[in-house]
């Protein structure tokens, strides 16, 4: 059996969207961790004077949200590598926003190379408002090496 086969039945399946509250303290801690001094991420008074009106989340902050679990889908614990990450931004995420986050398995494919068999799992993650209008859509490719 090909290593990718056990993942293929889950293509197209998604988690139930999870409600996440965007907290200004979480944004500030994230900005501190990445060493980004931008006042938009920490200074409420400054941010209020901009077109955003509120503290804004940095471009990759959305990765910190809870996206729920795809029913019955189990990701291996070991042998995983983050291969690539894409963001498609629709509207800014600000402190105080309530967002609904879901994860879907978009595609599975297999490649053989010098490192042995590699299974590529492509996930599409959506961050939307209560009406279902997206803030952003992100795509993550996770590489699984069964022999690792």
């Amino acid at each position: 059996m090909a290593a990718a086969d056990k993942f293929r039945p889950f293509i197209g399946r998604a988690s139930t969207p999870v409600k996440n509250e965007v907290e200004k303290g979480a944004i500030r801690k994230f900005a501190e961790a990445i060493g980004d001094p931008n006042p938009l991420y920490r200074d409420e008074q400054y941010a209020a004077g901009t077109r955003y009106g509120h503290i804004v989340a940095p471009p990759t902050f959305s990765r910190t949200f809870d996206y729920g679990v795809i029913p019955d889908f189990e990701l291996p614990v070991a042998g995983l590598i983050h291969g690539s990450q894409e963001f498609n931004y629709k509207k800014p995420i600000c402190a105080g926003d309530v967002v609904y986050c879901a994860n879907k398995l978009l595609d599975v494919f297999e490649k053989s190379g010098s490192l042995g068999t590699m299974v590529f799992l492509v996930f599409e993650q959506t961050v939307a408002d209560e009406a279902g209008e997206p803030f952003l859509v992100q795509k993550s490719t996770v590489i699984y090496r069964p022999q690792a």
């Binding site: 060493g35 931008n38 938009l40 940095p58 990759t60 291969g83 690539s84 990450q85 498609n88 795509k139």
Partner: peptide
């Protein structure tokens, strides 16, 4: 996120980042 910081500094308060993709 480091590359994201560079892009945020480039777009400033009035610009918008539209897409951003990276291979590790």
């Amino acid at each position: 996120a480091f590359v994201g910081q560079m892009l945020s500094e480039i777009v400033g308060v009035e610009g918008d980042l539209l897409t951003f993709g990276i291979r590790f």
